[in-house]
């Protein structure tokens, strides 16, 4: 198989007080290598669920469909195996880890992934050097490396920290789940730069967003509209502009 990421007929449920509730109802999506795709859609349409299912969160049960990533069955892999294979999820709500030093966490993650990829591990000095350089490039305060993971971080700091992790882990496929929400224009630019810096023929990204602004910086290759657990419409970057102008109502009516 030559495809980079291929999702077909993906269905998933979540436990809703004892009975399964279907969130993804047959998602079909192809993302070729080297492309940035955007997913837009109203709240509750399944965008975050899609990102969790792709990164292996166990709360969701996959009830149908397939996902292949560079020819491998992604759904059969543990979350950490997916990370090693190059899948990265930038969380919509990054999790706090009290008492866990950010630099240590990052180094542990980077070395776990490097081990799995048969690359030499970075010692503390090498790692700190790389982390400081990345932080600088993302106009982040290197002090963030000394703090506990996401504890007491502002919303913007948390998102920047996600982008820093992405930069250091060097994924092949990144999912950004509303990483732009609640960011001011400068922070937004940092996030966009983070993704742009990774752009290469062998890197792809799926950007979940509500806002045109991020896409102005990123310029996606494709834009998809998601609602009620399915991809309703796909198009070029102009689709995002159309959505911005008309809202989702028209698409939803069209699809109904």
């Amino acid at each position: 198989m030559s495809q980079f990421l291929s999702i077909s007929g993906l269905r998933a449920t979540i436990d809703d007080q004892g009975s399964p509730k279907e969130i993804l109802r047959g998602v079909d999506l192809e993302i070729p290598a080297g492309e940035v795709h955007a997913i837009m859609g109203p709240n509750g349409s399944g965008k975050s669920t899609l990102s969790y299912v792709l990164s292996g969160r166990e709360d969701y049960e996959v009830t149908g469909g397939e996902v292949s990533f560079e020819g491998r069955d992604l759904l059969a892999m543990e979350p950490e195996e997916r990370a090693a294979a190059g899948v990265f999820l930038a969380f919509q709500a990054p999790v706090e880890l009290p008492g866990v030093n950010n630099a240590n966490f990052l180094r542990t993650a980077v070395n776990a992934v490097r081990r799995a990829r048969n690359e030499p591990e970075l010692d503390a000095v090498q790692f700190l050097k790389a982390a400081r350089a990345e932080a600088k490039r993302l106009s982040m305060d290197a002090e963030m490396l000394k703090r506990n993971v996401n504890v007491g971080f502002s919303g913007g700091e948390k998102k920047r920290n996600e982008v820093l992790q992405m930069a250091l882990l060097q994924p092949r496929f990144a999912i950004l789940d509303e990483t732009d929400s609640g960011l001011d224009i400068d922070a937004l630019r940092v996030v966009a730069e983070g993704v742009k810096a990774l752009r290469s023929p062998s890197f792809s990204a799926l950007v979940i967003t509500h806002h045109q602004r991020l896409l102005d910086y990123l310029v996606p290759d494709r834009v998809h509209v998601m609602a009620r657990g399915r991809i309703l419409k796909s198009g070029g970057p102009e689709l995002a502009h159309q959505l911005e102008a008309q809202g989702y109502a028209g698409f939803l009516a069209e699809a109904a």
Binding site: D59, P79, A83, L89, V95, L97, A109, V113
Partner: peptide, 12 residues
């Protein structure tokens, strides 16, 4: 589970 998943999604 959030904390565990967060760490695992980073390769741990």
């Amino acid at each position: 589970e959030d904390q565990l998943f967060y760490c695992r999604s980073r390769g741990l």
